[in-house]
């Protein structure tokens, strides 16, 4: 009984998957590579340059964009390079913005005496910029009050 059901499910799954596997060849990612194909080689990376100042923010809760190069910055179990300039003790010496006070809260809203570990991977939210062509048109504009 059990095996019969398993077989039926298996066949149904196969039949359902068939059209997808057949057409996956034609599907392309935004970067124009086939879905199953290899990614573009690394030499297509764009060089990130320092903007030389802060970048404008477009909405209130936006994580500010990173206005400088982050190439080869170590973020390992042992060490987080971003904090070498952005921590409260280093900010004055380096001229970097101090990490936001909100980053000292855990997810229950409790204030901590140190930066919350859930903020460890800065680049998860703060992203550097290049002058790349937009892949998709974007018509977003900030609220007039901002």
């Amino acid at each position: 009984m059990k095996t019969a059901i398993q077989k039926a499910v298996g066949i149904a799954a196969l039949v359902l998957a068939l059209p997808f596997s057949a057409s996956a060849e034609g599907v392309k990612s935004l970067r124009e590579t086939a879905v199953g194909g290899a990614e573009h080689p690394a030499e297509n990376y764009r060089e990130i340059r320092d903007a030389g100042g802060l970048l404008p923010r477009d909405f209130v809760q936006q994580p500010p964009l990173v206005p400088h190069s982050v190439t080869n910055y170590q973020v390992t179990l042992n060490y987080n390079k971003c904090m070498d300039c952005h921590s409260w003790s280093r900010a004055q010496a380096t001229g970097a913005t101090k990490v936001s006070l909100t980053h000292f809260r855990d997810r229950e809203g409790q204030e901590l005496s140190s930066v919350s570990p859930r903020r460890y991977f800065c680049l998860q939210c703060h992203v550097p910029q290049t002058d790349a062509k937009q892949l998709v048109d974007n018509v977003f504009s900030p609220a007039p009050g901002l």
Binding site: N78, Y79, S87, S114, P117, Y120
Partner: peptide, 27 residues
């Protein structure tokens, strides 16, 4: 850390890693 990974440094993230060096060794 220009060429290799750095040893554990206490940068004030949650709990201190065992054996971490104080952050001021860097500067």
């Amino acid at each position: 850390g220009i060429a290799h990974k750095l040893p554990a440094i206490d940068q004030g993230f949650g709990d201190t890693l065992p054996g971490a060096l104080p952050a001021d060794v860097l500067h």
